[in-house]
């Protein structure tokens, strides 16, 4: 008979809970930077400069075409080898997640820009606006508004994928749960706690996304 022993996990709960902060820090910082990077890449994709369009396309293809875990390990272990710089776990995580989510977000941004009515661009140009001004104040605000739900989905993906940081020793939710597990020779309970924490975080984001979507529809 299988006996579940959550009693032995309770004392370690605060320790696992502290991982929530870490997970959220990786997710939010990478999302913010990835959004900036993805916007720049998205602008390259819809722009007139062929070399930048090409760069953004190849970049996206590479980051979407290889495992995130490989990217993370590569950046963490190869950076010291190639540059001599001793990259921290935090830096490697943020860099990898930013570069990776930037690729996905650039696709979302590109689609968002293309979905803005063509007449908006013509109206802006006919008023004498420059291309950068038009993008910044006319096209991007409308594009980003339309893609907010997709961006929330991307943040959900990122939140779950951030668990990979535990592989190189980042002390996030998953890592702390496995430490507790190894410590107490008890696997199911701490991992279930970790799973529940991720699930609650994802649900909060999902509900926020639904709320946002409803709000955008009515306004």
């Amino acid at each position: 008979m299988i006996i579940l022993d959550f009693e032995r996990v309770w004392p370690s709960l605060p320790y696992i809970l502290e991982g929530v902060q870490v997970t959220l820090a990786y997710t939010s910082v990478s999302l913010l930077l990835g959004f900036v990077w993805g916007t720049l890449l998205g602008l390259c994709k819809v722009g007139h400069i062929a070399s930048l369009r090409w760069f953004a396309a190849v970049y996206t293809s590479l980051f979407r075409g290889t495992p995130l875990l490989l990217q993370l390990i590569l950046i963490y272990f190869a950076t010291p080898q190639l540059t001599g710089y001793n990259i921290s776990i935090w830096q490697a995580g943020i860099l990898t997640f930013t570069l990776n989510s930037g690729a996905y977000i650039s696709e979302i941004i590109r689609a968002g820009i293309n979905a803005v009515d063509k007449g908006q661009k013509e109206a802006a140009l006919s008023l004498g606006m420059s291309y950068p001004l038009m993008m910044k104040d006319i096209i991007l605000p409308q594009a980003i508004r339309n893609i907010l739900p997709s961006l929330v989905n991307e943040s959900i993906d990122l939140l779950k994928e951030s668990a990979l940081i535990s592989v190189i020793g980042g002390s996030d939710i998953l890592r702390r749960a496995t430490i507790v597990a190894n410590d107490k020779y008890l696997y199911f309970e701490p991992l279930i706690v970790a799973g529940a924490l991720y699930y609650v975080l994802v649900m909060i984001l999902t509900i926020a996304a639904q709320f946002l979507e409803k709000k955008l529809k009515t306004s």
Binding site: G119, Q120, S126, L127, I138
Partner: peptide, 14 residues
């Protein structure tokens, strides 16, 4: 273009 304005069939207000 600042000297020549344009009004569109579909209005194209922001």
């Amino acid at each position: 273009r600042t000297k020549v304005g344009m009004v569109f069939q579909q209005f194209n207000l922001f």
